[in-house]
Simulated assay, not measured.
Amino acid sequence: MKKSHGPAFRAAKLDLAKCPACGGKAVTQGVFHELACVQCNASGWVTAETGGALPLEVLVTQLSIRLRAAEHQIAQHNCFRPAGAEAQYSENNRRGPGATNYTGD
């Protein structure tokens, strides 16, 4: 292992698991009302290796990393471009009255 001084250049992605106490809901059922889960600091996520709660600063960073990855996957799946007649129907061809879209309907 290499010696290093100071913080890491990039935040490492940790393996997270749903909290076994609350099932990832961040709350547990009390007698009369729901209580914040103390095992996961009311986040619903724990470390996969130890099952312990993450400090809030680390948790925010890890959830941000996961959110960016999920948004990237969604963006890749939503890159559908219509082709053929569908593309022509939805684009503005400026042939209608006042240079609006004319679809022939």
Rank of each mutant, 00 (worst) to 15 (best):
Q39I: 00
E49Y: 04
A11S: 07
L35K: 14
Q76K: 14
Q76D: 09
S43M: 09
C79K: 15
T61N: 00
L63R: 15
P20C: 00
T50G: 06
C40D: 11
R81T: 07
C79N: 15
G84L: 01
T61K: 07
V46E: 04
E49D: 12
Q76V: 07
H33W: 15
A85D: 11
A69I: 08
A70I: 09
L54S: 04
R81S: 05
L63K: 12
G51I: 04
C22N: 03
L16I: 10
Q39K: 06
V46L: 04
E71R: 15
C40F: 11
A11E: 09
H72R: 06
S43Q: 12
A70G: 05
H5D: 14
P7Q: 13
P20W: 00
Q76L: 14
N78A: 10
A48G: 02
Q73W: 01
A42P: 06
E34H: 09
E71I: 13
A26V: 03
C37T: 07
A75L: 11
E57T: 12
C19M: 11
E34A: 05
A85H: 03
K2P: 08
R66D: 12
A53K: 12
D15T: 10
F80N: 13
G24I: 02
H33S: 15
W45F: 12
T61Y: 00
A26T: 11
L67Q: 14
A75E: 10
L56G: 01
E71T: 14
S4C: 10
P55G: 01
L56I: 12
R10P: 10
A42T: 06
K13A: 10
G52E: 11
K13C: 01
G51N: 03
P82F: 09
S43L: 10
T50F: 08
W45L: 07
G30D: 05
S43P: 13
C22Y: 04
G44N: 07
A48S: 13
A8G: 12
N41A: 12
C37Y: 06
